[in-house]
């Protein structure tokens, strides 16, 4: 009759086991709360990157020489104290590390969360607070990563930079590469869409950071959402202005 009768035992001594201790950071990372710390810290690093990347790129409005010169400047960061490109490479590797950490934490939290509700609700949910941004973090994140790969192949490695054009990719001619790439409307469109999703990702992520890191204080709590949205808006507006500027001809060779 009854489909299954649970075996029942009295509850006792539930808190006498000891948890295996790992080295400090691994120990922290082993729990979901710790992984959120990893998400938040790597998120901050990448937020710093996208902001400076956007600011640097506005040099294109000052002309080819400025932008190309900025690229050269990056290579010479801290030169001659440090060898050429060394600092840039340290930054690149660190950022990749942060990205890897962000992705790993996101992946393992997703697995955890799927496991936490193996049988989904059989009727439609009526969400009250969850926003489009918060609910699309995985999707927006994946699209942004895919975009990043394209973006690197396009403007850093030049592999896809000349598809559909008759130009030649020259690494140091950043300005020309950008204009050539965005002259292709599907590329410009992809760029705009990806950046809008990045903005969505940041609008939730930049707020989440405060929660995940436990930065909570009535004195600034009201500003947390405003900061996240403002930050996202600045990055997105800056970034999508570039393909639009190329498309409408403000920036051209």
């Amino acid at each position: 009759m009854s489909t299954s009768t649970p075996t029942r035992q009295p509850v006792t001594a539930t808190a006498v086991g000891t948890r295996k201790r790992r080295p400090l950071l691994l120990d922290l990372y082993s729990t979901a709360v710790g992984k959120k710390y990893a998400m938040a810290i790597s998120g901050i690093a990448m937020m710093g990157f996208v902001m400076f990347h956007m600011l640097g790129n506005t040099k294109m409005y000052l002309g080819a020489a400025e932008l190309d010169g900025y690229a050269e400047f990056l290579k010479k960061l801290l030169y001659p104290l440090a060898p050429k490109e060394s600092v840039l490479w340290i930054l690149r590797v660190s950022l990749l590390g942060m990205l890897a950490l962000h992705l790993h934490a996101a992946w393992s939290l997703t697995v955890l969360n799927r496991h936490a509700r193996p049988v989904r609700y059989q009727s439609a949910r009526d969400y009250q607070e969850a926003s489009l941004a918060s609910r699309s973090m995985r999707l927006s994140g994946i699209v942004v990563v895919m975009f990043m790969v394209w973006h690197l192949l396009d403007l850093t490695f030049g592999v896809v930079n000349t598809i559909g054009t008759d130009g030649v990719y020259v690494r140091s001619e950043v300005y020309a590469n950008v204009v050539r790439s965005f002259d292709r409307w599907p590329v410009a469109l992809f760029y705009v869409v990806a950046n809008l999703l990045l903005g969505l990702h940041l609008a939730h992520g930049a707020w989440s950071i405060f929660q995940s890191l436990g930065w909570n204080n009535p004195r600034f709590n009201a500003w947390r959402v405003a900061f996240a949205r403002g930050f996202a808006a600045i990055v997105v507006i800056g970034n999508i202005s570039f393909p639009i500027a190329v498309t409408v001809g403000i920036v051209s060779v």
Binding site: A15, V33, L112, N113, A116, Q128, A130, S134, R135, H204
Partner: peptide, 23 residues
């Protein structure tokens, strides 16, 4: 430490949707 560790054995992770507080 103890409560968070125990929570981890049973539940998913927070992604700051805010649904909990609304419900």
């Amino acid at each position: 430490e103890a409560m968070v560790d125990t929570m981890d054995e049973h539940f998913g992770s927070c992604t700051n949707h805010g649904e909990c507080s609304a419900a």
